[in-house]
Amino acid sequence: MDQLTLIVKSMPENESLVRSLIGAYAARKNPNIEVINDIKTAVSEALSNSIIHGYSDDATKDIHIDAELADDALTVSIRDFGVGIADIKKATSGFFTTKPELEHSGLGFTIMQAFMDSVDVNSKINEGTTITMKKRLV
């Protein structure tokens, strides 16, 4: 099986690194550039949410990224062990944010859902959050 696992610290600087890497990984299947860009954007949204919300910008924490290429599709999951999401339905609806004071507009999940074929949210209070997304590449 063609799989990739990464563990990164919860630092914003890792967002561009991880999205580029997952984009390059997906590029093995030769999707068009728009597909790669969609993946990079969605991965970045999930990762920034783990950093900002899951870990409240605590850079010492770990984020796990698992990616897999199978059946001409990419599956990528981003997992933190942070505060978790109390109400997933509410959190994933557009324009909902718990940090409006920092100019967050609650668009991260809207972007992930629009840019990927599927977005699955698994979360438990004080245990963490896993976002699993899938995108067809060809």
Partner: peptide, 13 residues
């Protein structure tokens, strides 16, 4: 060549 939701928040702000 890349914008995320924080970038959108920047523009809206």
């Amino acid at each position: 060549t890349f914008i995320d939701s924080t970038g959108i928040g920047f523009i809206l702000g």
